[in-house]
Design a protein around this nucleic acid. Structure first.
Length: 571
DNA sequence: AATCACCGGTTTTTT
DNA sequence: ACCGGTGATT
């Protein structure tokens, strides 16, 4: 129990009944899960009897790596994977039929000729179908016909979509013997990011958890930001009713953010209704105030960010230089570009910022849509595979390889890092069992749709990262700039009904709590919306942060030359 | 096969 | 304002 705080120890040791761990941002959530698994194994639990599920490949991989670092090879016997990987394994173990897995694009390709609509429209409908399936509900009257056509088509093509990887196992487990087998196997179940579970996944989980299963759910309802794609935070909130005899542990000690940042975020999120009320504390010193900056327009915003980054690069912490304080917790290491991230609500905000940074000579990259296969390295195995397959002379050769040879080829050809190839091998093992090396590569190619996360990126790259608030979840940076903290953007408003202020507030909370040392909240007084220049108001969420946490900076309207001067005056 | 004018849409996105 | 897709023209 070394290096764990009291609450974490409690979460690690409570292995008898159901356990709900409410884990605030930066509270050592993953550490706690890893140590819980290690604890179970030390107590004599066989690693095969442990199931740890996450929602993203990124999270699963991090967990596998850390578990391996702690336990060595035995870690590979624990099932650590996404819900979809688990579903795939259950399907694999219980059906002999061949099938392919369609991604969103392939779903849209199937829908398009069926409906005679544009690709974009088909994608939209694919999203809707996915939403219906993930909520495990019936399609509405208007969608019913389309939905049924789609299902028929998928069946005839022996295709499963991502949601089927959850729904199909639910059907399969409607079999007492089979259910017994799985329950006997997965005796200890841990679910990470439980606030993001959707009803279909919840149903699968309920099936797997029997009377003798210990279930441990870890998450933070304040970071539930995926309702729009079917996640339902109510599963988290009703956990204690769902699993009788639940013990609840709150991890509220934050190891990430300095005091002012955490205080500001905490007070802000307290305005939400229907919360599990928890106070959070940081072990760090109060640090610099949160900077709330009012800037005239888009260009000024980019320039401001560029300037703030520039002034820290190659020097000591700006805060220390200016204030000559000696707070122990303010890390006394020079900044590098990868210490900074700029985050925003919508992707279209990225371009303007990127331009201004590039102009100042600050290297940056935009994370998200399509960025995974940028650059000299190919990050996406699926796209690599497709290219490889298209070189016809390789095709037969590749199909005939066994799995091990196949992965080795990718090692070489992709200059993939060894860790990644090993991890991929491990995932194969999770799906196919220990005989996976005997498999022929041709059989694995669709599984690969599942194993290729778009969130796969090199975090060590020496650049400033630009991304959406959604993408930022689970990451941390020394300095965070949140751009466009404006009404209409944060919270985002479309005018149609489905929007939730609470969810938008949580999104802002996620953004704020990414910062370790410094946080900038920037709003423009004038912005461009659908090509029209309009006056903008600061986000109403800013008014929920007590003034004592904030330092306000106002950059005047042009001329731009005043910018820097004015800024200096303010310090 | 490539080019271009037009049109519609314009939030977030993992698997 | 601008992007991406579409369908017509070269």
């Amino acid at each position: 129990m070394e290096g764990l705080n009291e609450r974490q120890v409690e979460a690690v040791k409570s292995t008898t009944g159901p356990l709900l761990v409410v884990a605030g941002p930066g509270s050592g959530k993953t550490l706690t899960i890893i140590r819980r698994i290690a604890h179970l194994i030390h107590k004599g639990v066989s690693p095969e009897n442990i199931l740890a599920v996450t929602f993203t490949n990124r999270a699963a991989r991090e967990m596998r790596e850390r578990l391996h670092a702690l336990l060595g090879a035995i870690a590979y016997s624990v099932f650590v994977g996404t819900f979809h990987l688990l579903g795939l394994r259950i399907i694999r173990e219980n059906t002999t039929n061949k099938f392919v897995i369609y991604n969103r694009e392939e779903q849209a390709d199937l829908l398009q000729p069926l409906l005679h609509v544009s690709k974009a429209k088909a994608m939209e409908i694919a999203d809707k179908i996915s939403y219906i399936k993930s909520r495990a509900t019936e399609p509405s009257q208007e969608l019913k016909e389309v939905f049924e056509k789609y299902q028929t088509r998928m069946t005839s093509q022996n295709a499963l979509d991502f949601d089927d990887l959850i729904l199909k196992p639910i059907q399969l487990l409607d079999n007492t013997d089979l259910l017994k087998r799985y329950r006997a196997n997965f005796r200890h179940v841990i679910v990470d990011e439980y606030q993001d579970i959707n009803p279909a996944q919840y149903t699968l989980l309920r099936l797997l958890v029997g009377d003798n299963t210990t279930i441990c759910a870890v998450g933070d309802p304040d970071q539930a930001i995926y309702a729009f794609r079917g996640a339902d935070v109510r599963s988290f909130l009703s956990f204690e009713k769902d699993f009788l005899g639940t013990r609840e542990v709150i991890l509220n000690l934050n190891y990430r953010s300095s005091g002012n940042i955490l205080g500001a975020a905490d007070r802000m999120i307290h305005r939400n209704t229907h919360r599990i009320d928890k106070e959070i504390f940081t072990i760090k010193a109060s640090g610099p105030l949160v900077v709330v900056a009012s800037v005239p327009d888009e260009e000024a915003e980019g320039d401001f960010i560029a300037h703030e980054i520039e002034s820290r690069i190659g020097g000591l912490s700006h805060y220390r230089l200016l204030n000559q304080t000696n707070e122990r917790d303010i890390v006394d290491t020079p900044f590098c570009f990868s210490d900074f991230a700029v985050i925003f609500r919508t992707n279209n905000q990225a371009k303007a910022i990127e331009e201004r940074l590039a102009e100042t000579g600050i290297p940056c990259r935009i994370l998200g849509k399509g960025s995974s296969d940028w650059g000299p390295r190919i990050y996406n195995i699926a796209s690599f595979m497709k290219q490889f397959m298209n070189r016809t002379e390789n095709r037969d050769h590749l199909f005939a390889m066994n799995a091990r040879e196949f992965l080795e080829t990718i090692g070489k050809d992709l200059q993939y890092d060894v860790d990644r190839v090993n991890d991929l091998a491990h995932q194969m093992q999770l799906i196919f069992g220990n005989e996976w090396t005997e498999l022929v590569a041709g059989d694995m190619v669709n599984e690969l749709n599942l194993l290729t996360p778009s969130d796969d990126f090199d975090s060590r790259a020496e650049v400033v990262t630009l991304m959406t608030l959604h993408m930022a979840k689970g990451l941390e940076y020394r300095v965070i700039f949140i751009s466009g903290v404006e009404d209409g953007l944060i919270p985002y408003r479309t005018g149609n009904a489905s929007e939730s202020i609470d969810e938008e507030r949580r999104l802002f909370y996620v953004g704020m709590t990414r910062a370790k040392e410094e946080l900038y909240l920037i709003y423009k007084r004038r912005g461009v919306v659908y090509g029209k220049k309009t006056a903008r108001e600061p986000s109403p969420f800013l008014f929920d942060i007590p003034a004592s946490y904030i330092e306000r900076i106002t950059l005047p309207d042009r001329p731009k030359k005043l910018l820097r001067k004015q800024q200096m005056k303010l310090f």
